[in-house]
């Protein structure tokens, strides 16, 4: 191999750099929860927490298509409860603390959805 030393050293540096987040997590820093504020009056979301946490964005996409294209404006959850499909008028009625619920988690996960350029954040606007 040409320039074997330089190439192998380069590969090692590359591997070290690209895996650095894993190493840095070993050196101490614990995962901190995002401390999001859950709704006070409502205990249950429409599906279980794990599903909502990981799939809420896909569910919202599906809701949008069902409501806008198929006129299916009601969602019957797995527990049989019926919900009106609306981000603004269903989800945000319980999750009415934008800063401490949506934003906190989105910022912690470095995702910046632009729902709020159109949908109104509860209590006035952003």
């Amino acid at each position: 191999m040409y320039n074997a030393k330089a190439v192998i050293l380069g590969i090692l540096v590359f591997v070290a750099l690209s895996t650095s987040p894993f190493w840095s997590s070993f050196i101490g820093r614990d995962y901190k929860t995002t401390d999001i504020a859950l709704p006070k009056d409502e205990k249950n979301c429409l599906e279980n927490v794990e599903f909502m946490r990981s799939q809420h964005m896909r569910l919202l996409n599906e809701w949008r298509d069902e409501a806008l294209r198929n006129e299916n404006r009601a969602y019957i959850a797995s527990d049989g409860k019926k919900w009106v499909i609306s981000l603004q008028n269903t989800c945000l009625k319980c999750h009415n603390n934008y800063e401490d619920f949506c934003q906190k988690c989105h910022v912690a996960n470095s995702v910046y959805p632009y729902c709020w350029t159109c949908h109104i954040i509860p209590k006035g606007s952003k």
């Binding site: 404006r73 969602y75 019957i76 797995s78 019926k82």
Partner: peptide
């Protein structure tokens, strides 16, 4: 994706 179902 949703475990539930949809209705008018």
């Amino acid at each position: 994706i949703a475990p539930g179902s949809y209705a008018h």
